[in-house]
Amino acid sequence: MKLKVALAQINTVLGGVEKNLEKHLKYIEEARQEGAELIVFPELSLTGYVLQDIVPTVAHHPEPSDPIFHELLEASLGIDVMVGFVEEDQRNRFYISAAYLSAGKTLDVHHKTYLPTYGLFDEGRFFARGDSVHAFETRYGRVGILICEEFWHASPPYLLWLDGADIFLFHSASPGRGLPGTDEPGEMGRLASSRWVDDITRAYAGLFTSFVVHTNRVGFEDGLNFWGGAAVYSPDGIPLVHGPQHQEALIYAELDLNQLHRTRARLPLLRDEQTDLTLRELNRILNHRKD
């Protein structure tokens, strides 16, 4: 069984949800015509990233009654769609969110659980933290969503793996930083942040013998640049596609889902994973730690 995935590493208008929606619809249609079955947009793809006080004015609900999602849900009749947006819950907390739309329905909504609030990041100042990491069923298998900082931590991808995800859908709005120096001749042409994200997403594919699909945005917001570089890795950790750096693009990868069988037959990491041991040790550590 094969799955054709489109990765839309787009630029966005900061706070311009309707303009961003137009671009989404354009790329969704293009990907559908190319025969893709899923298109993945970057983190906060409907709003832009450094929202600050814009946050309360760009929140939407992934339901047919919402004018923005009404159109996206309609577009999802022809192709599954993963978008990034701001969701406001019933008690007025705002979340960095990702919605998975399929056949006119919202299959899943994920709220970002790790909000970087250090260095150049200030997400914890403006957003509430999500409280769930989970996998869910789609028409081509079980998948899970993580947003940017969440996969800088090892535990959320691990949880997705144990919850049955065979395809990890990652997306980011990753600000570029760290120009390579002359002491790193092998790293010329891309930033340290780009290399790091590539390294860890590739590692997850291999460690969890699963597909990793990652879409990151491009463009500038004030002095921040976003580096693009969307990528897909096979369960063997082999790169299937790499998007260009710092350039808007719609790229495609064909996932041979039978590779899960072949890789896991060779390398039964999932079979041998000792979750009981992990849980036991976690309980011991949490109950006895002295910090």
């Binding site: 260095g119 150049l120 600000p175 570029g176 930083r177 760290g178 120009l179 340290a192 004030d222 002095g223 921040l224 640049n225």
Partner: peptide, 14 residues
Amino acid sequence: PPIAKLSNRTVGYD
């Protein structure tokens, strides 16, 4: 005026 971020530590950002 925004400074274009290149390094890991930039005036105004981190």
